[in-house]
Amino acid sequence: MPVTVIIRKKELTFEAGLTVFQLFTRLGLPLEAYLVLRNGELITEDEHLREGDVIELIAVISGG
């Protein structure tokens, strides 16, 4: 069962086993600009993505 990653209202799928850090490398995104929620809970970049996880990347940078 793949991992679902939601970023800016778009859904992407990745294989389980990646760390959050590796996910960001794959996406080419800076860790600094996002927070990561797994099933609604904040997680750190060393966490491994598990089968069936729903991962939400929250953009934290605003243009104000």
Partner: peptide
Amino acid sequence: ERESAAYAILRGIPYIHDEC
């Protein structure tokens, strides 16, 4: 900025996520 966003989320403060 990442820290203040984390504070809002962890405190359960609803805020506007959409950008101007």
